[in-house]
Design a protein around this nucleic acid. Sequence first.
DNA 1: ATAATAACCTATCGGAAAGGTTGGTTTATA
DNA 2: TATAAACCAACCTTTCCGATAGGTTATTAT
Lengths: 143, 143
Amino acid sequence: MLISTKGRYALRVMTDLAEHPTEGYIPLKDIAQRQGISEKYLESIIKLLVKGKLLAGLRGKGGGYKLMRAPEAITVAEILRLTEESLAPVACLEPGASSCERKGECRTLPLWQGLGKLIDNYLENYSLADLLHTDDQGYDYVI
Amino acid sequence: MLISTKGRYALRVMTDLAEHPTEGYIPLKDIAQRQGISEKYLESIIKLLVKGKLLAGLRGKGGGYKLMRAPEAITVAEILRLTEESLAPVACLEPGASSCERKGECRTLPLWQGLGKLIDNYLENYSLADLLHTDDQGYDYVI
DNA sequence: ATAATAACCTATCGGAAAGGTTGGTTTATA
DNA sequence: TATAAACCAACCTTTCCGATAGGTTATTAT
């Protein structure tokens, strides 16, 4: 599995905020309730989004969170990178991976590189706004 | 990470066998040595490939393993499916996943379905023979 | 026959990461 | 000044990855 629960939840939080546009801030409690996710667990995820400057948080009464950019200007890749560390399909392509000594002769490396690029490209060109505009197509695709 | 060590090793085993064509059988020991992988660990992986009818095993002296089909007729997807259980990018798209109650209203489902299809397609159209013909391009792509 | 070879089978284990919980502290506003 | 809310740190449980160990069965060369 490429994307963990953390990443999926992060995306749902962002989508939720984008779907409820407001001048002010939306409290975590509301998001958690609407999405059916534990408040406390969501907290740890939202923290990453704030740290990554995708969300702004305001404390105290009337506080909460809001998007720092328009949904059109936020990519899915950006969101996932904050929660997933790496979107690489295999360990050898991960950022901190120790350089493989078989690199030169490895027959499978090009395969993985191609796959990595494919995934990256897809997520990089998918905006938060795109997520909103997708109607349910009743499309039942399963791998 | 989408593909585990098991999947990567499986691919290397298959490539190794394809690169050393012979009438007879190649013992596990040779493969393990050439690839620098523990014999015992490789054993557990190769077992899956035999069970999946991609390899044939012969016991006793002069025994070993060999491909049951031409490299052109074996896809990477096929190999990985035997070791990975699922190539789904997220848990909700996995075969045994309990149907999500938010399915109808989920804004992110189409994203994941699209990604899953993309990955699937890529691996399905990549043959074992393709792996052999890739020369090292010195291509240093990292995500 | 029998010794050597090699696939096959089963159980176990340490460590890391995922997924989640608990309890408390600080900041802002009504 | 009470309350709402973000923020912070520690911990815990389960699962799975990667690997090891030890033994059994089948085949062939001597």
